[in-house]
Each structure stands twice: as structure tokens, then as C-alpha cells.
Amino acid sequence: MLKNTQCIIGSVFCICLGAWATVGGLNLQLFVMGVPASGLFPFLFGAILVAIGVVSLFIDIRHYRAGISSELSSFGYNGTRKVFAYLILSISCTLLIPIFGFVIPCFILLFILFALVEGVDWKLSLLVASGFVIFCDILFIRTLGVQLQSFIF
């Protein structure tokens, strides 16, 4: 049943987003002296999103009750753990870049992802991580002029 629950949550999220845009649009005013104001567009499309979301939610709930499962993939324990690891490590790396520069955080991120998350042999991880970071440093920072500091000490 988890698969249908995912669809229901998706529809509810869309309804909330639509409602937020509709209310926000109303607060911004729809017309000023007969001329469309900045709230009209988000109000219109937010309201349509709410309407479509409600129809979709109705269908999802009917499918849920009838036990019809959708073709989407559900959350697996190992997979979700990996996804979280990827996200947390990427955010940590991003926050470390202004402190240490690009090379060290990215190398650590790659090494941890290869060796600990993906289970690649540690020597190969070390080799590929260092090689790829050097490649990126040469291509993006030195050749294409991306304003990232390679190292900050």
C-alpha cells in the first residue's frame, strides 16, 4: 500500500502548493483599476492546481481503497539509506567548500561515497577520487575560469 500512499502524498503536496499560490495571489491583488496585477497569474494557476490536485487525490484514494498498485517504485531500506548518505554528504561538502576550497571537500566526498557508500575497493576509490578531482580542477577552475578556490589555507 505504500506505493499508493506515495501518490496520495504527491497529490496532497500539489494541493498545498496550489493553495499557497492562490492565497498568495489574492493577497497580492488580482486587478488594480481594471488592469491585471501581480497576484492574478499565481491565483489563476494556483486555483487550477488545487482543482486538478483534488481530482488526482480522489482517484488516488479510490485506487488505495481498491488495492490497485501503481507502477512506481517504493522506498527500500538500503536504497533510502544511500539516498540520505548522498544528500547529507553533498550538503556537508557544499558547506565546507567556502572554508577549505574545492579540492579537499570534494575529494573527501568522492572517497566516502566510493569506498563507504558504494562499497568500491578503497585503493580504487582513492585513485578515482583523486584523479577526478584533479581533472575537475584543471577543466573547470583553471581552463573554464569557474571562480572556485582550489585550496583555502
Binding site: 553533498s90 566526498l109 561515497l113 578515482v128 571562480q147
Partner: peptide, 27 residues
């Protein structure tokens, strides 16, 4: 894919940072 995915991640981080040289874009 276990080798490819982390590499794509790094390219995405550099790519989004290079838009405005702003860490907020990466987040």
C-alpha cells in the same frame, strides 16, 4: 554506476556554483 553517480554529483556542484559563484545555488 557506483563510480559514475558520485562524479555526476561533483559536476552538478561545480556547475551550480559557477552560475553566480554562490553557495546558495548549490544548496
Amino acid at each position: 554506476a557506483s563510480i559514475l553517480s558520485p562524479m555526476i554529483l561533483i559536476i552538478c556542484i561545480i556547475g551550480s556554483y559557477s552560475l553566480n559563484n554562490n553557495i546558495h545555488d548549490v544548496v
